[in-house]
């Protein structure tokens, strides 16, 4: 196929609005493919390691998932609400602050140096002091994740606010918009698509931090969250992978939620794709 034809097909496929069922089918196929890959990997590792089981096969993990159902489920919910709460806190603080810093020049000059100094420090470095402040219960776990995501969202909201086209701002100003209305009608909607993208990135990052938070310090086997569940299953690889599967499921659910939110709050970006 020549280049022009390929480009043409890409444009047509991009514009097509695929049905929900097609998406479901593609996801199902992807899951099957992943399981197959996992099975192959587990067979290969077993034969290389002389029959010892390091990577359990998917059937074993799924069987463990069912056997440990109630316990896994409790821990799933604990991790889920910790993560969601941390994301919400980070979003509710980092997003507006990032917009302010990105849009108001004076604030930018004042605050950006602080951001640039603090942002690159790995937030795990603060984990000990957080344990000292918050103790070892829920709050510390939420705090660790929220702090990490706060900077992530702050920096990307600031960047997005700086990208806003001057023309849009001029246009609402000339129509008599107040300061707040510029935020409401331009800054906020203009930055939504990119902030949702960084929210997606935040899920992966948040999971990693949550895992660290849940495995560091004292571990409560009953109500410790998926991180401690996995760590507690150190001698049962099947259960360990059941925990990992549950984490994957959690991430997947959050992705889907963000997709749905995006379709609702960023409707215009889908319209653009439809007609181009």
């Amino acid at each position: 196929m020549n280049r022009a034809k390929r480009a043409g097909r890409w444009l047509v496929e991009r514009a097509e609005d695929r049905g929900v069922w097609r998406h479901v089918a593609i996801y199902a196929a992807s899951v099957l493919l992943l399981l197959l890959f996992w099975e192959v990997a587990s067979v290969v590792i077993r034969s290389l390691k002389g029959g010892r089981e390091y990577l359990p096969n998917p059937i074993v993990a799924i069987r463990e998932m069912i056997r440990l159902g109630p316990l896994l489920f409790t821990n799933f919910w604990i991790s889920a609400w910790r993560l969601v709460l941390a994301i919400l806190i980070a979003f509710a603080t980092g997003y507006p602050l990032g917009l302010l810093v990105g849009h108001e020049r004076r604030l930018d000059e004042l605050i950006s140096p602080i951001i640039y100094i603090v942002y690159p420090i790995p937030q795990v470095a603060f984990i000990l002091i957080l344990f000292l402040i918050f103790g070892i219960g829920h709050p510390v776990k939420v705090a660790i994740v929220a702090i990490a995501l706060f900077f992530q969202l702050l920096v990307s909201a600031r960047g997005a606010a700086k990208q806003i086209s001057l023309e849009h701002i001029t246009s609402v100003l000339s129509a008599g918009a107040s300061r707040w209305q510029v935020y409401r009608h331009v800054v906020l909607p203009a930055t939504l698509p990119s902030i949702l993208t960084s929210l997606r990135v935040s899920i992966g990052l948040g999971m990693a931090f949550l895992y660290i938070a849940e495995t560091a310090g004292a571990i409560d086997p009953e109500r410790g969250g998926l991180g401690s569940f996995i760590k507690n299953s150190a001698y049962n690889t099947g259960a360990q992978f059941a925990g990992i599967l549950a984490m994957a499921l959690l991430g997947f659910c959050l992705y889907i939620i963000i997709d749905i939110v995006e379709r609702i709050v960023c409707r215009w970006t889908y319209a653009a794709r439809r007609s181009s």
Binding site: E167, H168, T170, S171, V172, L173, S174, A175, G176, H185, V186, P189, A190, L192, C266, W268, A272
Partner: peptide
């Protein structure tokens, strides 16, 4: 400042893509 009796039309119409 911007007046109620005055309207400005910009080069690319200045339309907001999200509206």
């Amino acid at each position: 400042g911007p007046r109620r009796d005055t309207a400005l039309i910009l080069q690319n119409a200045g339309l907001l893509p999200w509206k």
